[in-house]
């Protein structure tokens, strides 16, 4: 089957360094929401590419929580990263519908060819590989999200092209 060619349409931006004033601003803006913790963590990760350790006490203070409580939430959810990702993030689906179309062998081969492990980043810092369990693209498997953009009917060549394209 003929698939679309995937391109990296998003500009490659390295995760910015820690900026306390910036983080405090993000937290202040959202702290008034009901159940504000997840929206704040999402906003921090969107800005920094991960949830920097330094942000935890600031969030705890703003929401009147203990640092342990905030840490507990950050580590519970698979989405929140404990270290900065590469310039691009590929979330490759590992769930049953994609398995039925060979996703396991696809992922294994991809990782072997590029010396990657799950959650690992290519040597040039271009691409981080993350596992994901279902993207709702189950009728056009195997599927992935590249920087939030959906990809379907993946094969070796298409995935290898992504690593090429992610080079700085």
């Amino acid at each position: 089957m003929q698939g679309p060619s995937a391109t990296l349409s998003h500009p490659a931006v390295a995760a910015p360094p820690w900026d306390e004033a910036l983080a405090a601003g993000i937290i202040r803006e959202l702290a008034g929401l009901e159940g504000a913790l997840l929206p704040i963590l999402h906003a921090l990760q969107e800005r920094f590419g991960w949830v920097p350790r330094e942000a935890v006490p600031l969030v705890a203070e703003a929401l009147n929580l203990s640092r342990a409580e905030v840490h507990g939430v950050v580590t519970f959810y698979h989405d929140f990263r404990a270290s900065p990702p590469g310039r691009h993030v590929l979330k490759l689906c590992r769930a049953e519908a994609c398995q039925a179309m060979g996703a396991e062998a696809l992922a294994e081969g991809f990782m072997r060819r590029h010396g990657l492990a799950w959650h690992g980043t290519t040597g040039d810092g271009g691409l981080t590989l993350e596992p994901v369990f279902c993207l709702g693209l189950c009728a056009c498997a195997p599927a992935a999200l590249l920087d939030g953009e959906p990809l379907a009917r993946l094969d070796d060549a298409l995935l290898d092209g992504l690593v090429e394209g992610a080079r700085a």
């Binding site: 009901e34 997840l38 929206p39 963590l41 999402h42 939430v73 959810y77």
Partner: peptide
């Protein structure tokens, strides 16, 4: 509100905890 990659949050009480900002 946006989840954060936890399958268990499809269970209704886990979902409510998540909405409240908890694990």
């Amino acid at each position: 509100r946006v989840g954060a990659g936890a399958y268990i949050c499809g269970e209704e009480t886990a979902l409510l905890n998540s909405l409240e900002g908890k694990r």
